[in-house]
Amino acid sequence: MDAILSITNEKVLPILADWEAVDSVLMLRFGTDRYDPSFFISYDVYYRGSLPERESRERAFAFAAGFESTLDGQKDRVLLDDVPVRLEYKETSLFDAMLREIGEGDEGDPLVNTYGFYRLERGEVLLERSAWVARTRASLREIPDAFWTRRIDAFSARMDHVLADLSTAVFSGEELFYQLSLASFLSTLCTLLFSINRRFEPAGRLLTEQLKQLPLLPEEFATRLEYLLGHDSAITDKRKREIAELVTYSVLRLV
């Protein structure tokens, strides 16, 4: 695996380093090895100013087996010798603005998705042309508790709402509404628990593992979560709603 990462870095980094707007590049790896269907290498490219247009970026990766870009031009996917590579382009000023608002106490959106912070906190630094990454990571470590408190309050209130939706879905027998409500309940639950533990949320594929490792969890959480995620026909939708209610009350007691 180290050899694959090294070879891929040798192909990707010179291209990114040639772009004047790039400030820093961080790498994250997903999956266990190249035969894992979820495996890919991700590069977060933090920049100031303007990056090359899509056509120029595609020409830079002309040697790749495949290249595609999102409509907004903020993500590229490249296939390098059957190794899937993702490039995500992120303006440093957006992170600066978010952290400045959060640092001001009562400002900042408490509902903001913290996955971007997680990636910035955990990524391996491959290229940096300034102290921006180190400075921003220091700011992440110093996020005021007021932000987490407002976030906990917001998602605690949402827990009651999504539980009510789940109850309505169960008793109405609307299957699609039930599935959407259960998904919304689980999403809100995860966000609230990570917030209670003052942690940034990881990628979805890492949620189960990292959720169970949180230091502060409600009683019988792992068992109840398995029931909610399971497909045992003996656990009816009505029973899952009852379990969701127990989970809600036990989580809110942690607040």
Rank of each mutant, 00 (worst) to 15 (best):
I7L: 08
T8D: 04
E20Y: 14
V22T: 04
D23Y: 05
D23P: 04
L28G: 02
D33V: 09
P37E: 12
S38P: 00
S38E: 12
I41C: 02
I41V: 14
Y43T: 12
D44C: 06
R48T: 11
G49F: 00
S50V: 09
S50W: 06
R54K: 14
F61H: 04
A64G: 07
F67T: 01
S69G: 08
R77M: 05
V78D: 09
V83G: 02
V83T: 14
L87D: 02
L94W: 03
L94V: 13
E101T: 04
E104I: 00
D106E: 13
L111G: 09
V112R: 01
V112L: 10
N113R: 05
L120D: 09
R135Y: 01
R137M: 09
A138Q: 03
S139C: 02
E142L: 13
F147D: 06
W148C: 12
R150L: 03
S156W: 03
V162K: 11
L163D: 05
A169C: 06
V170P: 02
S172L: 09
Y178H: 02
L182W: 06
S184W: 00
L186T: 12
F194T: 10
I196H: 14
I196R: 15
P202G: 03
A203G: 07
A203F: 10
E209I: 11
Q210E: 15
L211A: 02
Q213S: 15
P215C: 05
L216Q: 11
L217E: 08
T223V: 11
L225G: 05
G230E: 06
D232K: 08
S233G: 02
I235N: 10
D237W: 02
K240S: 10
K240R: 15
A244Q: 10
E245P: 00
L246Y: 09
Y249V: 14
